[in-house]
Nucleic acid binder design. Structure first.
Lengths: 289, 289
DNA sequence: CCGTATTACGCTAGCCGTAATGATG
DNA sequence: CATCATTACGGCTAGCGTAATACGG
């Protein structure tokens, strides 16, 4: 029988060219490699090497064998990869969301329904990568801004979220009850970059604004607290991040249609029954609100 | 490291379904299989089986792993097959011929040039399978009836051979100096079936003849000697098979164009230099004759 | 003379088989 | 209680490392 260690040693020899190099790379002694290779030739019944007293190299049969050895090792690695990946997926509930708030809402629901499972999510700014990931089974569920009407999907409405802008009370717009995003044109605005679609939306709708991006959420919140720069807040972020409006600031509602989001939870149609508990919980949540 | 024996046992389990059956099939004890499978799960880090106290079966990860195991084993077998096949080919000089006589001529030439190599040939009735086999490297050389003019081939003329018919002296045609094949219409004729193109040619050219086929050459020669039935002989077969025309029979030349054959030796153009010694020997042979 | 491959020799890790145990239908 | 899987234990194969040998640039 051709054992794995021989196959690996042959493949390594094809890359290294000397037995000593193979020995060093595989953390094994020189004589061991010499023996394995001799044994391999015996098993196959074909000479694989051209030898002199102090050199050894592959002949044409050995080169062919080494190519096959590489293929076999790849197949073994692929086996490990595939099985481990399937296992990991089976223990991970993965979803994608167009914004952080619905992801925050979904997380405890899933953790409760699937205790012991890893729950993980990714944020995306656009819907296409979410639907693509759903189709490719990288996501079990995605949260979108629009209902998926395709028959291949099962879709339920999820929470709503409203964007406001947080202004110092001395700001020229601070007295207004509500404003448009375009009113913020030219402002310097603090913003977190991992907020899904909000990020590209506000960039698009506020001409000439300077966005001071802060990749660390904790740092951003600290800077917001200690500066007089405008920043964004939503009804949900205020609650979930425990960041009430400070006394010297005021939250101004935004009038733009895009500033009010209704989210939708979507799964593959074939997964609807498997995920019925999740969608029941979602419906309950919406019903209560 | 995933060892070959584990992979094989897993693949066998996927086919057999119980550890005992695997043990029996692989000539190994039950506990050994049990241990190997447990070890495999440990190495991969993923449970592959659903167990009760006295039953064990693959779970979905195990089924995936078993599919990969099959692939790996196939790759290993393919490695052995390919390397051994390449080795065998390197030690075998293989040629195909449209008739036995040129094969007989070629054999000693090749044995002398390649001492220690196995020399083997196949007879074919048609040229197409010969050229196909040459292109597919199943033959190193082929012997045809027509020169190969294609640039992909290297071609040299080889020996000539003339067909006669062997008739009892009492036969109605025995007094003729030469006859046409069609003159034998309706005769019962003894014939060997492994004579390449001659076989189909005479069958085509002699209407209504009854051919008494004899697959064993030795038997055929014996029957020819002890019967009064017509049979075929060529200038070369007479010499090579040591079968001189018996006193009560006579060899009548055949006038048909097809009864005189000129053979041509052909190899792939890329092999011409490798086989130059062979073609020199062929040219010498022709030159002497 | 250092680097490389092979041979010799004793060790031990690990796989195997037997036997015992436990569970199930 | 017959069948199947697992656990325990002792034996032995076989691959390993060290050391020695031999060759070559």
């Amino acid at each position: 029988m051709l054992e794995t260690y021989m196959i690996q040693q042959l493949a390594t020899f094809a890359e290294e060219g000397t037995l000593s190099a193979v020995a060093e790379r595989l953390h094994i002694s020189q004589p061991a490699i010499s023996r394995s290779m001799a044994k391999m030739e015996k098993i196959i019944g074909v000479p694989l090497f051209e030898r002199t007293k102090n050199s050894i190299r592959l002949n044409s049969f050995g080169m062919l064998a080494a190519r096959h050895a590489g293929i076999i090792l790849c197949a073994q690695e692929e086996m490990l990869r595939a099985v481990r990946e399937k296992y990991r997926r089976s223990r991970t509930f993965s979803y994608g969301a167009i914004a952080p708030a619905p992801a925050w809402e979904l997380s405890p629901i899933l953790s409760q329904i699937y205790p012991g499972m890893t729950v993980s999510y990714e944020l995306q700014e656009k819907e296409e990568p979410l639907l693509k990931g759903l189709a490719e089974k990288r996501y079990d569920i995605v949260v979108l801004l629009n209902p998926a009407k395709d028959e291949n999907y099962f879709c339920r409405p999820f929470i709503r979220e409203c964007l406001s802008v947080l202004l110092p009370k001395k700001h020229r717009l601070a007295a207004r009850k509500a404003i448009w995003l375009k009113d913020l044109a030219g402002e310097k605005i603090l913003i977190h970059d991992k907020i899904g679609f909000w990020y590209s939306m506000v960039r698009r709708k506020i001409p000439g604004a300077v966005f001071l991006e802060q990749p660390e959420l904790a740092s951003l919140l600290e800077i917001v607290k200690n500066s007089h720069l405008p920043s964004f807040i939503t009804d949900i972020s205020e609650q979930k991040l425990h960041t009430p409006v400070p006394k010297d600031k005021t939250a101004i509602l935004l009038l733009d249609e895009e500033a009010s989001a209704r989210f939708y939870c979507v799964c593959r149609a074939g997964d609807a029954s498997r995920l019925s508990a999740v969608f029941s919980a979602i419906d309950n949540l919406i019903g209560r609100k």
